[in-house]
């Protein structure tokens, strides 16, 4: 009887401690998450680098991939130049292999993927760049292949990233071929463009780029390619399923877009 009372008291105290931890872990730069990142950041940098080294491709595979990427990049640049209205300068993807061309005001903070939560089914991860490097909540995240997602939580030395596969993700996009606009959201864990105009010209294989509307994602970042056009059974609207440009599960590095010219600017209707 005495031990049962003692156990119940311990349970109550533990639940109060859990509640307190819950309060201390909410919001940006929360004390608990900051302390945990500071304690384990060094270890995760080592283990993440060691783990990515286990799956490193051979020199031949790298050379082959380099040639393929060069050729793809050349055709993407040509498509962008021909189909998008630019102000006199081409925009290309930021590459971590030194292939960079400046976009007005675009500032990137590159970082390694430190951790991946086992409970996240949508490719989310923690990057080793926090408020100490100017990263803020809602900053866009990109990789050398294209758009990844956005920052959803920040602490002193790391930030948590939700990919475009996450429920609730919304990105204003435009079709590189037809210039039709829509919103890229997540449907059953796959990105899809909804709110398409009634008379649209989107077709499979089209390149989808961010439009920059809303001021969160910089314009001209490749989000993916259209893989399928489907009809919603509930309202008969057409939506386009998109194959994302980035492989979220295999990503080992990404960059946070901390500034770009139209950041925070929302287009007035």
């Amino acid at each position: 009887m005495k031990s049962r009372r003692k156990n119940r008291k311990a349970l109550l105290l533990t639940l109060i401690a859990v509640l307190l931890m819950g309060v201390l872990s909410v919001g940006d730069n929360s004390p608990l998450r900051t302390a945990l990142s500071a304690l384990t950041g060094g270890i995760f940098s080592l283990t993440a680098k060691a783990a990515s080294g286990l799956s490193e491709p051979s020199a031949e595979e790298l050379a082959e991939e380099n040639e393929r990427l060069k050729s793809e990049n050349a055709s993407l640049q040509k498509a962008l130049a021909e189909n998008l209205e630019l102000r006199g300068e081409n925009k290309t993807l930021w590459s971590y292999f030194g292939l960079k061309k400046s976009a007005p005001g675009l500032e990137l903070v590159p970082a390694f993927v430190l951790r991946r939560a086992a409970t996240d089914d949508f490719g989310g991860f923690t990057l080793g760049a926090g408020s100490d490097l100017g990263v803020k909540t809602n900053d866009a995240v990109i990789c050398e292949s294209g758009l990844v997602g956005r920052v959803v939580a920040v602490d002193g030395s790391a930030c948590r990233v939700a990919t475009i596969l996450s429920p609730g993700s919304r990105v204003a996009v435009t079709d590189g071929e037809s210039s039709d606009s829509g919103i890229l959201t997540s449907r059953d864990g796959n990105p899809a463009i909804t709110q398409l105009p009634e008379k649209h010209n989107i077709k499979t294989g089209d390149l989808i780029l961010t439009s920059g509307e809303g001021g969160i994602y910089p314009p001209g970042i490749i989000a993916g390619t259209v893989s399928e056009l489907k009809t919603d059974p509930y309202d008969s609207s057409v939506y386009a399923v998109v194959e994302p440009a980035a492989d979220f599960e295999e990503l080992s590095e990404a960059a946070v877009v901390v500034a770009f010219s139209a950041k925070g600017v929302t287009k007035a209707e």
Binding site: K6, T14, A17, V18, S25, L36, R115, A118
Partner: peptide, 21 residues
């Protein structure tokens, strides 16, 4: 009592990676 505390700690560490405790 120790089992309860281990449960709380493991649960908190699992939660912290995906959001708040």
């Amino acid at each position: 009592i120790p089992a309860t505390v281990y449960g709380a700690v493991c649960g908190a560490l699992t939660d912290l990676e995906s959001g708040s405790v």
